[in-house]
Design a protein around this nucleic acid. Structure first.
Lengths: 197, 197, 197, 197
DNA sequence: GATGAATGAGCTTTCATTCAT
DNA sequence: AATGAATGAAAGCTCATTCAT
């Protein structure tokens, strides 16, 4: 294996492990030595891959945003109704919240609330732009096809993402009486009703 | 009873100032000396009012929850349609986001994302229970009157609060093309459409 | 009751409570507010009785020394053999270690080990001089009567007091297999054998 | 294995310096920065060697106990009378009190009187068990050979150690009229007379 | 005399980051 | 590339003491 490849793999491993620790234990409660230890790697070497803890945090949000964007992109390319697309997106979101909760929780518990970290380099949601773009594509297609009401994009985006995020937060607080996947139908319908033409 | 009154006032002043600093600069980036300095008070004396930074954080979320709950309670008591109540709640929420942004941002930037802090004593949303109760009253009344669809409360709660929180987050990121109050109509309608019977 | 009397009583109460807390929890772990609270007294008022924590500590050692000296003085005045006096002193010491352990423990856990506190005003065992004097009286009488070997006083003092203190320390560590009073006979004999002419 | 050696050396250096400072200035009056400064080492790095001030205190008492135990062990292995062994032990104890007073004083001024610190992990004299064991070996041998009276071990231990500790305390208070080594003969005889069969 | 809110220096401990090896 | 010992600023919190009431 090429050196560059190995480096790329280790880089991704760092992102994975940090993502998990930041999401689970909080950004400030997770130390660089914590991350290095879990990776069986030295602290110094970790700095060969990411120049600082803040840079690492920003790379993670980009990574996370891209993973989600990829999934939504697939849905966007499907030849199905907007109503079905909504259900697909809700489904993939909640499935990810179950299988890889750290991905969603990173949005809620790290990105959302550490403005001091993301202000330099991620301002204006720059680092999650691919994700936003895909939501925008979904929305514009729905409007174009006459299935969705034409309104300010952010009215729709806030609904979609606030709603899903809110549900995952409730899941994290262990207050939901049912498994989160059992909410897929209700929530998809609610979103569709809110946005439909 | 002069002294007790003065103490209560100072206690509230601490809450106000901490709320502001935590919301603006982040929980971990705000130090106790920062708070004391802004209050022109000694660090030691601050600890006469709150036993720790974590306790202070929990008192603030209770305070904030109560302020919001009071407002929503007023709406609940009004003799108007559920549709109008939704608009009233959205309006008061966005007005507060403009006038006292720190109150709403505290939910998003402190409460939502510092589980380590709120786990001991606020688990399961205990500390915001009055707020949740008022939303529940609103929802149950709407269902009882036949205006809202009967569904799992959390499906409705997540929509309502995730949506509003999401919009305030977008406002905080300065990505909204319009003033947040201009979204009141659209968003109220979206919520009503999502929840109506 | 006269004001002066009331003050003297309160002074003694402070000494008693402080003695107890210092012995049980350690000098530095006991705070002035702790003492005031247990006395149901304000911190400020406590300072009307003792100018500082260090002064209080010194008054306590004098008080403790005097209480023990009084008891030993009584033994010294008895018309019994030196061997019996030894037994009486050991007995009273161990009885006090049972009934009022804080008195003996204060010697071990506060006086012995906080030189920084007792250096100013109690140097050279000044504050326990009455206690030392009574031991000296006991020793000199024993030598004069031919019952004890004539040797450097401190050789005898170290034996007597080190031994008894050591036993109380072992009691405090809960390592003694028997109740401390069951050691009275053995230890009295050991001391007598060590010192006898 | 260079690095591990260097680490071990530094660890021992920290113990030495802390032992000295704790003994001389008191446990609570000695701060971690004090120790670091004397070692020309950063505060943070000191914590790479000992997890807390309390852990450091416990490691020191183990170290001290082991040094003394080593010396007593040598005496125990000698083929000499119990009377001579007593003299050897007293001699080594007082010589150490002169050459390295901090070692003995640590027992008196730190270990003896900071139960809060040693209660977690050193309870029941666990951390000085090697030292106690050697005294026990000495005592049991003397009893077995018929030179010492058979009695409860703690009666003998309290005498031996209380006595020696008491003398070193008197030395520390500067009240002894003679150099401590001049007491060796008297005290050895006193101890032998107290314990002999 | 009595109160307890107020002070602020000082404590232990943490941790992002560096750099000699 | 890789190591991890070292740095040191800064955090949360404590507490003897003061002083206005």
């Amino acid at each position: 294996m090429k050196i560059a490849e190995k480096k790329a793999l280790k880089r991704e491993a760092i992102i994975q492990v940090s993502l998990e620790l930041f999401s689970t234990n909080g950004f400030h409660k997770t130390t660089i030595p914590d991350i290095a230890k879990k990776l069986k790697m030295s602290v110094g070497n970790l700095y060969n891959y990411f120049a600082s803890k803040d840079v690492l945090a920003k790379e993670i949000i980009k990574y996370t945003s891209n993973v989600l964007a990829d999934e939504i992109e697939k849905v966007n390319k499907k030849d199905i109704s907007t109503k079905d697309k909504i259900k697909d997106i809700v489904t993939l979101y909640f499935q990810m919240a179950k299988k890889r909760p750290e991905m969603i929780e990173y949005f809620l518990r790290v990105y959302l609330s550490h403005r001091e970290v993301f202000n330099n380099g991620c301002e204006g949601m720059l680092c999650i732009s691919r994700f936003i773009t895909e939501i925008m594509v979904f929305f514009n297609n729905g409007v174009a096809s006459g299935e969705l009401k034409n309104q300010d994009f952010f009215s729709a985006f806030g609904l979609f993402m606030g709603y899903l995020g809110g549900m995952v937060f409730l899941k994290g607080e262990s207050v939901l009486p049912k498994d989160i996947e059992e909410y897929i139908d209700d929530i998809s319908i609610n979103i569709f009703n809110a946005l439909k033409a």
